[in-house]
Amino acid sequence: MTLSFIDHLEARLQTDPPKQKGQRTRERLKVATAKVLEQKGYHAMRVTDVTETAQVAEGSFYVYFKDKTDAALTVLTSLLEDFFPLHIDPPRERSAFDSIRFANRQWIALCRGNPGLVRCILQLGDEAPEFARLAQATNRAWYRRVTASVMRHREGLQDAPVMLMVTLLGAMMDELVRKLVVYPDPDFIELAAKMGADDAMIADAASVIWLRVLYPDAPPPADLSAKVAEATSWVFGAR
């Protein structure tokens, strides 16, 4: 299953195209919008860029979208509401750490597969308050799911403190992908390279922190790589 939203849209259009020609044109414009957003960003995108990419007349664009903001909102809303949740939800019957690690690895991989689109989420959030609220609501829904999972496995906890910790940990992951993928931080990239840390290793190290905060009595995971175990050994030091 591809982690590229553009590949996903193109594959869906090819394998399951809408029956009506007008809807097919709209889907082509959505694919084109996603491509231009990924390549140029929201601020630099022009309607002519989209129509040239879709190979349709410029007038056709305004049949389906009011302006470039409307098209961008349509594409990025689908990314947030449909595509990301499809890939980040861990399979059932996994340990707490395996579920955390799966979600964190997938989050980094999704941002790696769609860096320009993730950047556009931040760009458009500054100009469209309703989209910023949607992005926040998407994050909040995920945090609530994680919070509910923690409370199912640990008795005697209150919802609000757990939700706060999960939100803080989620913010850590958001900042991590900003430094790693969306707006690469040269110092952070250099540090990761110095330690020989790829995306999976960074996700695993972050997941150890998640485990220590949410499940403080859990032992260190047995299947960590030697480098991650060494880098995070102090997390499981004297209590």
Rank of each mutant, 00 (worst) to 15 (best):
Met172Ala: 15
Arg239Cys: 04
Pro91His: 13
Ala44Ser: 09
Glu58Thr: 10
His87Cys: 07
His87Met: 08
Val208Arg: 00
Gln14Val: 03
Asp7Leu: 03
Thr53Gln: 14
Leu214Glu: 04
Ala57Ser: 13
Leu157Thr: 05
Thr15Ser: 14
Ser4Phe: 00
Ala71Glu: 09
Arg140Asn: 12
Leu214Phe: 04
Ile88Val: 13
Asp223Trp: 00
Leu122Gly: 12
Asn104Thr: 05
Asp126Val: 12
Lys21Ser: 14
Ser207Asn: 00
Phe131Lys: 02
Ala141Gln: 13
Thr25Cys: 02
Leu134Cys: 12
Gln106Ser: 09
Ile6Pro: 02
Gln136Tyr: 04
Val118Tyr: 11
Val208Ala: 04
Ala222Asn: 07
Thr74Cys: 10
Arg12His: 08
Met201Gly: 01
Gln136Arg: 10
Asp67Met: 06
Val47Cys: 01
Phe97Ala: 06
Phe188Val: 14
Ala171Gln: 13
Lys179Asn: 08
Met201Glu: 07
Pro115Trp: 02
Trp210Asn: 05
Asn114Cys: 00
Val63Phe: 11
Ser60Val: 08
Ala160Lys: 14
Tyr62Leu: 07
Cys111Ile: 04
Leu180Pro: 04
Gly116Ala: 04
Glu230Leu: 11
Ala231Tyr: 08
Arg24Tyr: 11
Met1Leu: 09
Thr138Glu: 12
Thr74Gly: 03
Leu168Val: 15
Arg178Ser: 07
Lys194Val: 00
Asp16Val: 11
Arg178Trp: 10
Arg105Met: 10
Asp89His: 10
Gln158Ala: 15
Gln20Phe: 11
Lys179Ala: 14
Phe97Asn: 11
Val162Thr: 13
Phe61Cys: 10
Phe61Gly: 05
Ile6Tyr: 01
Val75Ile: 10
Leu124Val: 14
Asp126Trp: 05
Ser78Asp: 14
Ile88Ala: 13
Ile189Asn: 03
Gly170Asp: 14
Pro161Cys: 12
Tyr62Lys: 06
Ser99Gly: 10
Pro18Leu: 06
Tyr143Ala: 15
Phe65Trp: 05
Asp204Ser: 12
Ile88Leu: 13
Val213Lys: 05
Thr33Tyr: 07
Ala132Asp: 11
Thr33Arg: 04
Pro219Asp: 09
Lys21Pro: 05
Thr74Arg: 08
Ile108Phe: 13
Val47Leu: 06
Gln123Ala: 14
Ala200Gly: 02
Arg92Phe: 10
Pro184Gln: 03
His87Leu: 08
Leu157Cys: 06
Leu13Ser: 02
Leu157Lys: 07
Ala231Phe: 11
Ala44Gly: 03
Leu211Arg: 06
Cys111Phe: 01
Leu124Trp: 02
Phe61Asn: 04
Ala32Asn: 07
Asp199Gly: 00
Thr147Tyr: 11
Gln23Thr: 11
Glu190Asn: 05
Thr167Asn: 14
His153Glu: 15
Leu9Ser: 03
Ile108Thr: 12
Asp49Cys: 04
Val47Arg: 06
Asp185Lys: 06
Arg26Leu: 03
Thr48Arg: 12
Gly116Ile: 03
Gly22Gln: 03
Met172Pro: 09
Thr25His: 07
Arg101Ala: 15
Asp223Ala: 13
Arg239Ser: 05
Thr69Pro: 00
Ala141Lys: 15
Thr2Val: 03
Ala132Cys: 10
Asp16His: 15
Leu124Ser: 08
Arg105Leu: 09
Pro115Val: 00
Asp159Trp: 15
Met195Asp: 09
Tyr143Gln: 15
Ala109Gln: 06
Ala34Tyr: 03
Ala132Lys: 12
Asp7Gly: 01
